[in-house]
Simulated assay, not measured.
Amino acid sequence: MTEPDFRTPELDTLAARVIPGRHFEFSAATARDRFFKDTGMLDIKQWVHNAFRTNPRSMVDHMIANLQLTGTEDLLDLGCGNGFILQHLRPHLADGSITGLDIAPAVLDAARQRLHGTATPCTWIEASADDLSMLADNAFDRVMANYMIHYVPDLDRCFTEVRRVMRAEGLFHLTTDRPDSMLEMYDVHFSALKEMGAPDDLFKATPKGRLSLDNGADILSRYFDQVERRTWQDQLRFTDPEPFMQFYEIGHNHCCASSEPDERLGESFFSELRERVRAQVAAAITDKGYFAVTKFTGTFLCR
């Protein structure tokens, strides 16, 4: 099947104009205590990414193809979240094992419940991805880190530990975005902020800029002999503003603007921000028939 290509010169031009050079940075504690204090953020993202996608192959399909599982592998999932991805991978590991690690107890418990009763042995560990000291050397055939590496405090220690626990013929599977992924969401967000005269420090890109599809190969090649990048695209299309607004507000914390408490930004600020964003999305739907959010994402396969 030929993968769809949503990249256009118009989107490239828009990205050059819209996406800032600076990106947000959040601590592991913020991720644990705010973003993933429950499964709400993950639930919204997973629902929207699947319900509104236009690529027939889901991101999980892309991951399964890249992992090349035979069914007997021992797999470690760093930042396993609520177990959504592991639930889909589990039938491909019928005679293998799963170890899920996450720093946030609430989502880790959700993963445990999601896979409860399956025949594939599952182990759950509450820890940070840069401290794998509880795991033995050469213990895993596959190690995954999907859309979470930007939260890890010490990337050097994390990747060094991944090499230690991964077997000689193993594979490290790291998934992240390009800096201009979901460009249209950032466009309406920044446009609304400008209309409101918002503080300059809110005009930042996604935290995934810390290790993105653009800079990830250079970083990972310091730790792994072979680093291959495989890209994947999708376009979410909304004909009603409300699902997008949930995605924007809950799934992405108003493009990170509400990720941490800020005494300058009260509820009235975010209420006005949402109304301005909603109006732009509704206008696009009226004009084109849908509001598009283009995803430029992919995976590094490291050996």
Rank of each mutant, 00 (worst) to 15 (best):
K295Y: 12
T175K: 13
T286A: 15
L174E: 04
T120S: 01
M166H: 03
L211K: 01
T299V: 15
C302W: 06
P121E: 02
E195H: 06
A129T: 03
F247K: 07
F35S: 02
T120V: 07
G289M: 13
E195G: 08
D5H: 10
V281Q: 00
T72L: 05
F269G: 04
A129G: 14
T30D: 06
A257K: 02
K194W: 11
R57A: 13
V152G: 01
T30P: 01
S181Q: 03
F224R: 01
N253G: 04
D95L: 10
V48I: 15
T99V: 14
P91G: 05
D156F: 00
M185P: 01
L67G: 10
R22P: 09
F6D: 10
G251N: 13
K288V: 15
A119W: 03
N82I: 10
V277L: 05
R22K: 14
C122S: 10
L220V: 01
F172V: 04
G209P: 02
D180N: 04
R264W: 11
S58P: 10
D141Y: 07
E242W: 06
L67Q: 14
F238P: 10
T8L: 02
Y186M: 09
A16I: 09
S133Q: 11
L75M: 13
A136E: 14
T286M: 14
D218A: 11
F26T: 00
F35G: 00
E242D: 13
T2W: 09
A129D: 09
A168F: 06
D214L: 09
L78H: 04
S27H: 02
T294G: 02
K37H: 12
I103H: 12
D38T: 10
T299L: 11
A279V: 00
L42Y: 03
P241H: 07
E195Y: 08
P243C: 12
I19C: 03
E195P: 05
E10V: 11
V188E: 00
F203V: 09
H49D: 12
F35W: 01
P56L: 07
N146D: 13
H150N: 13
A31K: 05
L76P: 07
Y248N: 08
L86D: 12
L155V: 01
H252Y: 15
N215C: 02
A31S: 08
F36L: 09
H88Q: 15
E169G: 10
R237S: 15
A279I: 00
S271C: 08
Y248K: 06
L115G: 00
S191I: 00
N55D: 15
P153A: 05
V277N: 02
R7P: 06
K194E: 14
R230P: 07
F269T: 03
R276W: 01
D77T: 11
S259R: 07
